[in-house]
Design a protein around this nucleic acid. Structure first.
Length: 408
RNA sequence: GCGUCGGUACUCAAGUGGUCAACGAGGGGAGACUGUAAAUCUCCUGACUUCGGUCUUCGAAAGUUCGAAUCUUUCCCGGCGCA
């Protein structure tokens, strides 16, 4: 293979097989190893996958861990992590890593703060319900302006300021192989004109992020920057965002923001039809099995989501026949594995009754065993999807999996 | 035996004449969770209900009162003190 003169790109992506209009399986190469895609990225916000040791995470088949700029900046501080050799070394994770830019916290601590609004909305919900005014900032912990965002620490209320440049600086310190441009994750309840305004601002922030990143030659040589597509659930905005960011020299792309739950994958398809084909695409914060199928089918390569670990800690577990809430009374004397076809440590060694007992008695091990199972479930699913793509039977896998998973 | 304090829903525990089917916590039941403010949060937890209410409860019984978990008397049970 011919090496281009200035191809000192830290991240490269090779497509191994395509399917359908947009789908593909491939390999992302990073300074800390390869990622076989499609892949599920394990979230370790504070440089730890909650309830698990890195060895457990590795044994699940996890290929990448994603940490968060905002949390690590607040505690223990990005400079400390830089001095520790980067967050991967700090937490003793050997493989590839990512960091999120803090853009999601613009949403979760801003528009969504104190409300039950999530990233996903039911179709029509926003139109029929009351729209949220994102400029209504009283009581929120994040306030947005053209230059950046002012956060109040969720820990102690102290004020902090993020700009695209600052986010880059912090993420350089955190040292992940791949990281994201500073963006604004909008609320699905925000009106069209706000989605447009926020998207355009995110584009300006994307350019600033890219400029700041390239200015740091050392970092640019070993860390890849991903731009984040926004635009809410609007096709024209999503396409404009994909075109605008696609024209910028990012190492990969994130697809972020809010969607209608029911046709999220359609929206993802709009975007991926326009993004450069040879760059990896990451669907931010999505991790339900149904969504993974839709995302892969529509051209996404990697996914991250807190759902498996959060639910795993809260007692909701994936099974091939759908999710179960292990805290329910009916599992108290169920001496079968959580999922008898699962190859995870939890399923191979423990019964539903035992794990249910751990949850009921608030034992720490409950969250560990639940996280192991849910993570393995999604990682295994992504492995199966990759196999299926390579073997030309993705559609069959999708059908057989979802028929069972969603029945009832 | 005398004195004294206490007995409230599954448990602990508020309430001490009406606003009490009765605070709160735990337990129990269910739900939520999608770039982690999250080992978190929400709802339900006397019975019945046409969801508007109806009925039965605060150791037991009998009283006082328009009205009692709350006052009186007796009894039963428990703690403590004195015999």
């Amino acid at each position: 293979m011919r090496i281009k003169m200035n191809s000192k790109k830290p991240i490269s992506f090779k497509i191994e097989k395509k399917f359908g209009k947009l789908g593909r399986a491939g390999t992302i190469s990073t300074p800390h190893g390869d990622i076989k895609t499609p892949a599920f990225v394990t979230v370790g916000t504070k440089a730890t996958v909650k309830a698990l040791t890195p060895e457990m995470v590795r044994d699940l088949g996890a290929q990448v861990v994603l940490a968060n700029t905002y949390h690590l900046y607040l505690e223990p501080g990005d400079e400390l992590i830089r001095d520790a050799g980067g967050f991967a070394k700090f937490m003793n994770w050997q493989g590839p890593t990512m960091t999120d830019s803090g853009g999601f916290q613009v949403f979760s601590l801003g528009a969504a703060f104190g409300s039950k609004v999530g990233k996903l909305s039911k179709v029509g919900e926003v139109i029929e319900g009351e729209e949220i005014d994102p400029n209504e900032q009283a009581g929120k912990l994040a306030k947005i302006d053209e230059d950046g965002v002012t956060f109040k620490s969720y820990k102690d209320g102290s004020e902090h300021r993020f700009t695209p440049e600052r986010s880059m600086e912090i993420q350089h310190n955190l040292g992940a192989d791949m990281f994201f441009a500073f963006d604004e994750c909008t609320s699905p309840a925000a009106p069209y004109n706000y989605q447009k305004e926020a998207m355009e601002r995110t584009h300006r922030w994307a350019q600033r992020s890219l400029d700041a990143h390239k200015k740091n030659v050392e970092a640019a040589g070993k860390q890849g920057l991903f731009g984040v597509v926004q635009g809410g659930r609007h096709r024209d905005l999503r396409e404009e965002s994909a075109r605008t960011l696609g024209a910028m020299d990012f190492d990969g792309y994130g697809i972020g923001g809010s969607f209608d739950k029911d046709d999220m994958t359609t929206a993802v398809g709009w975007v991926n039809a326009l993004l450069p084909e040879d760059k990896p695409r990451h669907l931010l914060g999505i991790g339900e099995p149904e969504d993974l199928f839709g995302g892969v089918e529509n051209g996404c390569d990697i996914f991250d989501c807190v759902a498996p670990t959060r639910m795993g800690r809260n007692g909701t577990l994936h099974t091939r026949d759908g999710k179960i809430n292990l805290r329910n009374a009916k599992f108290v004397r169920d001496f079968t594995p959580i999922d008898s076809e699962c190859d995870c440590y939890t399923c191979k060694n423990y019964t539903r009754a035992y794990v249910a007992h751990l949850f009921r008695s608030n034992e720490m091990l409950a969250g560990t065993l639940g996280s192991i199972h849910n993570l393995r479930f999604l990682i295994s699913l992504s492995e199966q999807m990759r196999e299926a793509i390579l073997n030309d039977n993705f559609a069959e896998l999708k059908k057989s999996f979802l028929t069972r998973y969603s029945k009832k």
